[in-house]
Amino acid sequence: MNTQLTVFYDGYCPLCLAEMNHLKKLNKEAKLNFVDIQEPSFSVVYPHLNWSALNARIHAQLPDGSLISGLDVTYLAWKLVGKGWVYAPLRWPIIRWFADLAYLGFARHRYTLSFWLTGKRRLQGPSSCDACQPNKGKTDE
């Protein structure tokens, strides 16, 4: 397998899901593996990962097992499918600081922003509750 990045994304978020579907279409060389953290099997397959941290912002795992998050994931994922130039400016010094701050705001309010932009609310599942969140409270990423 040629996987170079495993992307952990929120399948309940309409905008996040749209981006992942677009990446899947471009992933012709299978460099990306996609994992929806909302799937019931997530906590069984990835019990060592902190679900709450992954739900707070996008994360990805590199082949060496290390995790990256936020726009570093977005840039690398798009780079691996040949479109990194679109997001490259967001990783440039100075711009990076502002882009990361804006991304954190997006991640925190992604359901509201998704509704405003797509007219779709959270796609499936119960509203947030402690019992509904696998691995809630785990501390290591």
Score class of each variant (00 low, 15 high):
residue 42 F to S: 04
residue 14 P to Q: 12
residue 28 K to P: 02
residue 31 K to T: 03
residue 52 S to I: 06
residue 57 R to S: 07
residue 43 S to F: 12
residue 42 F to I: 04
residue 38 Q to V: 08
residue 39 E to N: 08
residue 23 L to P: 04
residue 22 H to N: 06
residue 27 N to H: 06
residue 44 V to I: 09
residue 59 H to K: 10
residue 63 P to I: 09
residue 54 L to V: 15
residue 63 P to S: 11
residue 51 W to E: 05
residue 51 W to T: 15
residue 33 N to E: 07
residue 53 A to S: 13
residue 20 M to H: 03
residue 44 V to H: 10
residue 60 A to F: 02
residue 19 E to M: 07
residue 44 V to G: 05
residue 39 E to P: 00
residue 39 E to H: 07
residue 38 Q to E: 10
residue 41 S to P: 05
residue 49 L to E: 09
residue 27 N to I: 03
residue 49 L to F: 13
residue 12 Y to I: 00
residue 50 N to R: 13
residue 46 Y to I: 08
residue 57 R to F: 00
residue 58 I to T: 14
residue 12 Y to G: 02
residue 58 I to K: 02
residue 61 Q to H: 02
residue 23 L to D: 02
residue 13 C to P: 14
residue 47 P to E: 09
residue 22 H to R: 11
residue 45 V to T: 13
residue 36 D to N: 15
residue 53 A to F: 12
residue 16 C to F: 07
residue 17 L to C: 05
residue 27 N to A: 08
residue 42 F to W: 14
residue 50 N to C: 14
residue 19 E to A: 07
residue 63 P to W: 07
residue 63 P to G: 10
residue 23 L to Q: 05
residue 55 N to L: 14
residue 65 G to C: 01
residue 20 M to L: 07
residue 26 L to C: 06
residue 15 L to R: 07
residue 28 K to M: 03
residue 52 S to K: 10
residue 59 H to C: 09
residue 42 F to V: 03
residue 44 V to M: 09
residue 64 D to W: 11
residue 36 D to V: 01
residue 34 F to C: 01
residue 53 A to N: 09
residue 42 F to N: 02
residue 45 V to G: 06
residue 44 V to R: 09
residue 48 H to Q: 15
residue 63 P to D: 06
residue 23 L to K: 03
residue 52 S to T: 15
